[in-house]
């Protein structure tokens, strides 16, 4: 089962993609995704219900969050009411330890994203402040990375023995699925299933970026 674990919709301040348009795009372009996870910035979208879209397009659509910590951005899967009351998702200076501890205590799964990125990536903080003991999984393929960032993520993850997953970090429709995660299990249907699989470590990151076109017109 292949899921894009990192996407943004118009619910995020810089997201420009409608969720239904993601679904249409995946089907039209025959992108081999079985679903995607909406990881809106600094919030958890408790309101939106995408079950009708899931049925219409035969895709799994889950909700999570991307929060901002003193060690960079972190994806939190399996957000629930208890976790929402554990820390302020909108705070851009969350201590990473708070996020990791609260997620673990409340049955969620927290993992730093784009760890090779300057300032908002985990490893840029490791160089200055040392490693965090409770990190075990990071996003090693990120569709929004600039050249060199994913390479750094992969290298550093190997050094620290972290498992790696992938996500497109798409903010516009046409970038969904640039990176994704292949799970060994075929039947992830709920966010609880997803958390279980992330905890099991039975997954690998994949890149589905299209080849660049070489047909641009000079104007």
């Amino acid at each position: 089962m292949i899921l894009d674990l990192h996407t943004h919709s118009i619910k995020s301040d810089d997201g420009r993609a409608k969720v239904e348009n993601y679904c249409k795009w995946i089907r039209k372009k025959e992108i081999p995704l079985d679903g995607f996870v909406l990881t809106e910035h600094r919030q958890y979208d408790s309101e939106s219900d995408y079950r009708a879209l899931e049925d219409e397009y035969n895709l799994l659509i889950l909700k999570a969050s991307e929060v901002e910590t003193d060690y960079g951005h972190v994806l939190v899967f399996g957000v629930n009411e208890d976790l929402l009351h554990s820390f302020d998702f909108a705070n851009i200076r969350l201590p990473i330890q708070t996020v990791l501890n609260a997620s673990k205590e409340n049955g969620a799964f927290a993992a730093p994203c784009h760890p090779g990125r300057k300032r908002v990536g985990l490893f840029s903080h490791y160089a200055r402040s040392g490693p965090i003991a409770d990190v075990h999984t990071v996003e090693v393929f990120n569709g929004g990375s600039i050249p060199g960032e994913d390479q750094l993520s992969v290298e550093q993850a190997a050094i620290y023995g972290y498992r790696g997953f992938g996500g497109s970090d798409s903010h516009v429709v046409s970038r969904i699925g640039y990176c994704a995660t292949k799970f060994e299990r075929d039947t992830i249907t709920t966010v609880e299933d997803l958390v279980e699989e992330l905890q099991s470590g039975s997954f690998s990151p994949i890149s589905l970026k299209p080849e660049p076109k070489n047909t641009s017109i000079e104007t």
Partner: peptide, 13 residues
């Protein structure tokens, strides 16, 4: 149609 690409362009900057 949904999925159509616009022709890429390399503007003069």
């Amino acid at each position: 149609e949904l999925g159509d690409d616009l022709p890429d362009e390399s503007p003069d900057v």
